[in-house]
């Protein structure tokens, strides 16, 4: 197996303890850092698809993402400049009153591995804070809002409408168990996805 193949397998199977060494070996063997990163991104894409298809579960996603971040740590000093991602920055958060973040974190990992820079505002994020974060960070192209409670669906709506009303040029994607594509459209979001794998696909699609 080539070094780069090895890295891919280690990310896909979430071997976070082995991945750093494998990335180092690949670098030592002369593989370009960007190619290794691309390979890991592709692996996370596979992981996301398998999750969407119900073939793997939350723990497998978590350990794959952890493995990827271990690999990225090794790569970072070898990447030219700060390799500003072409897709821009994504501001993500769970809306006001809601503290569920497992789904949001998975979405964040997948969007990051798709090529966005992530600014994670955490949980219980009021609508204004999304707007502030768009202004405070460079090249924000996407805002992702998560809501898991039926009682925080109005907060989701408020977040989307506040962002839209600010006139800033960003796309908004929403999701969370009670959110439906119809509801997303009704509140004026640009996109919706049912799970983390498809969130990354959708994110790329709407900023393109």
């Amino acid at each position: 197996m080539s070094k780069i193949e090895e890295v891919k397998v280690l990310v896909e199977t979430g071997k976070s303890k082995k991945v750093a060494a494998a990335v180092q070996e690949a670098l030592d063997a002369g593989v370009k850092a960007q190619d290794i990163l691309d390979a890991m991104v592709a692996s996370m894409g596979v992981v996301g698809d398998k999750f969407s298809a119900g073939e793997i579960f939350v723990p497998e996603m978590l350990i794959a993402a952890k493995a990827m971040s271990k690999g990225v740590e090794v790569l970072k000093p070898h990447m030219a400049g700060d390799s500003a991602s072409s897709l821009g920055t994504c501001v993500i958060g769970t809306v006001a009153g809601d503290l569920h973040d497992i789904g949001k974190n998975l979405v964040s990992m997948m969007i990051e591995s798709a090529g966005f820079t992530i600014v994670d505002l955490g949980v219980d994020v009021p609508a204004d804070k999304f707007v502030e974060a768009i202004k405070a960070n460079e090249n924000v192209t996407l805002v992702a809002c998560s809501g898991l409670l039926t009682t925080t669906m109005p907060a989701l709506k408020e977040a989307v409408q506040t962002i839209k009303a600010s006139g800033l040029d960003v796309k908004v994607i929403v999701g969370g168990a009670p959110v439906t594509p119809e509801y997303a459209a009704e509140i004026g979001a640009d996109g919706y996805a049912p799970d983390a794998g498809s969130a990354a696909v959708k994110a790329k699609e709407i900023v393109a």
Partner: peptide, 8 residues
């Protein structure tokens, strides 16, 4: 969760 079991 609504769509899947947490673990396999």
């Amino acid at each position: 969760s609504q769509r899947s079991s947490f673990v396999s």
